[in-house]
Amino acid sequence: MYTHFADLDSRLIVLSCIEDANTLTCVVTVVSKTGRCPNCQYGSHKRHSAYMRVIDDLPIQGKSVQLYLKTHKWFCTNSFCEAKVFTERFEWLLPHGQRTVRLDAALRVIAFSTNCIEAAHVTRMLGMPVSHDTLLRLIHTTEMPTVHSPFCRH
């Protein structure tokens, strides 16, 4: 089970897990001694604070997975940067996101393969419970490649 989270980020440490009939809830933290400002890309060693984020991930054995991620805020030490405090960024998690990138990708595949009402039923049965409105939002925010018609004369 812990290798499931190591695929997300090798710095993740699982502090505790609680399992019930339908859900696996894990408290995880990230080992990091520095943070990189998203505005100026300047590295910082000055930690501001810590806070918890609740993140949904891919299911394990049909059980929905919820991560309580303890992450950090950092002071930007670049005096020319507008951001004085910034939050830690992860490549497997969008800023302000509540789902991992890999869960979003799986939900997009399901949403595009059928209508969103049926897809909501499927995701619930697979351990990825989301509403049909969430699936519609995923479809609308997906960038579609522009395809030029072979029948166009222009």
Rank of each mutant, 00 (worst) to 15 (best):
V31T: 11
I139H: 13
P38Q: 06
D7N: 14
Q41S: 15
D104E: 15
C26F: 12
V147L: 15
P38G: 04
Q61P: 00
D20I: 05
R108G: 03
Q41H: 15
F75M: 05
V109C: 13
T71N: 07
Y42G: 09
R36V: 09
Q98P: 00
H48K: 09
H132V: 04
H121C: 08
I60L: 15
V65A: 01
E143H: 11
S49K: 07
Y2G: 06
D7T: 14
H148G: 04
L93T: 03
P145L: 07
G35R: 08
C40S: 05
E82T: 10
F90V: 04
L138S: 08
R47S: 11
R53Y: 00
A111L: 10
E118H: 11
P150N: 10
P59F: 13
G127K: 06
C37W: 01
Y42V: 08
Y51K: 05
L12R: 04
F86H: 04
D57H: 12
K63M: 08
H132W: 09
H96P: 00
R36W: 01
Q98S: 06
C17Y: 04
S149H: 03
V31I: 11
E19G: 10
S64F: 03
V101M: 13
H154E: 15
A119Y: 07
G127V: 06
A120G: 01
R89Y: 06
H148R: 12
I110N: 06
R47P: 09
R102I: 10
V130C: 04
L15E: 15
I117L: 04
L94E: 15
D9P: 03
R36E: 01
Q41G: 04
C40N: 05
V85T: 14
V147G: 07
F90M: 02
R53V: 02
F80V: 12
T142P: 01
M128E: 01
Q61V: 12
I13T: 04
C76E: 08
V122H: 07
C81H: 02
G43V: 06
I139T: 10
P129G: 07
C152Y: 12
